[in-house]
Computed example of a mutant assay.
Amino acid sequence: MTSTLSYSRDSPAPQRPGTFIVFEGGDGSGKSTQARLLRDRLLELDRPVTLTREPGGTDIGERIRALVLDHGQGEIDAHTEALLYAASRAAHAHQLIAPKLDAGRIVICDRYIDSSAAYQGAGRGLGEENITNLSRWATEELLPDITVVLSVDVADARRRMADRGAADRLESEPDEFHLKVQESFRSLTSDATSGRIRVDGTGEPHEVAARVWEAVAPVLREEGTR
């Protein structure tokens, strides 16, 4: 079963003046690099922008990040892992993302709800819909305006991770796990109305950044008119 998350809501959600952009994809897909490059481009254009990440973004979120990603924290079963991610996301949404959007800023987030659907829902076998619904409850339906899903094959991703050194708990999972995650992200972009755009993550960072800009520019042009 694939995640049911889309960016249409069953009930009205607050209309915020800011724009919420999320980068998703498997480990080694280039999310963090592209999120920073988009932030830098927007700063050059004098746009008010905040870059953040998951898990993390708040004091409690960063502490949870260490629990779920660092080695040596003891056994963390799949359900506990999923709930820790949801707790970090709840703090992130309420303490940082929503206030920044209410202030009219562009918020760029490195990972969000789709990552939990892919990693804990598909990778851990807890069910993408279950995990998506948990995150929607935790964030009170604070959903992105657009999600950029960067796509690279697992072999390329592994090479990139090897180049950058030590792997965290999830990066250290076997290829079978990462293939499930990749397939989940692929399925999420199969619906053209979902608010997600699949972007080829192969090539030099500036080449990928040009594709990302092409994807997000229409949403940014609409900013302030929604």
Rank of each mutant, 00 (worst) to 15 (best):
H92F: 12
A35M: 06
T58A: 11
T52H: 09
L83C: 11
L45M: 08
A35P: 06
A35N: 08
D59V: 12
A78M: 10
E44A: 14
G57A: 14
T50A: 05
R41L: 08
H79K: 14
G56Q: 15
D70F: 06
G72F: 04
A82L: 12
D70E: 15
E54Q: 10
G56T: 07
A66F: 07
L69Y: 02
H92D: 02
L69E: 09
P55Y: 10
E54V: 04
L42W: 02
T33M: 13
R39K: 08
L43G: 00
L45I: 00
Y85G: 01
R36T: 12
R36N: 13
R39V: 01
H71W: 14
A66I: 03
L37M: 15
L42E: 03
D40K: 02
I64L: 15
D59W: 09
A91F: 10
T80P: 09
A90E: 03
G72N: 15
V49P: 02
L51V: 04
I60K: 05
L43F: 03
A35R: 01
H79R: 13
T80W: 03
P48R: 15
T58C: 12
R65C: 09
T52K: 06
L45W: 10
A66Q: 12
E81K: 11
R65S: 08
D40T: 09
L67D: 03
E75W: 04
I60L: 15
I64E: 06
R36P: 03
E62R: 08
R53E: 09
T50Y: 01
L45H: 05
Y85V: 01
H71I: 06
A90T: 05
G61I: 08
G72Q: 11
R41P: 00
L67F: 07
T58N: 08
D40Q: 14
L38N: 06
A87C: 15
E75K: 10
L45F: 00
L51Y: 14
T33P: 11
L45E: 14
Q73P: 00
E75V: 12
L38P: 00
R53A: 10
L38M: 10
R65Y: 07
L37P: 00
L69H: 05
H79F: 09
P48M: 04
E62V: 12
L42Y: 02
A86N: 02
R41Q: 14
E62L: 13
P48W: 01
G61W: 03
L43P: 00
V49W: 02
H92Y: 12
I60Y: 05
R53Y: 11
E81L: 11
R65V: 07
P48Y: 00
G57T: 10
G61E: 02
R89F: 07
A78E: 14
G61A: 13
P48K: 13
A66D: 13
R36H: 10
R65A: 06
A78R: 15
D77L: 06
Y85Q: 09
T58R: 02
R36L: 13
V68T: 11
Y85L: 15
E54F: 03
H71R: 11
L83Q: 04
R39W: 00
G72C: 09
D46M: 01
I76G: 06
R89P: 04
H71C: 09
I64N: 03
A78C: 12
D59H: 05
R89G: 04
H92V: 08
R65H: 04
G56F: 10
A87Q: 08
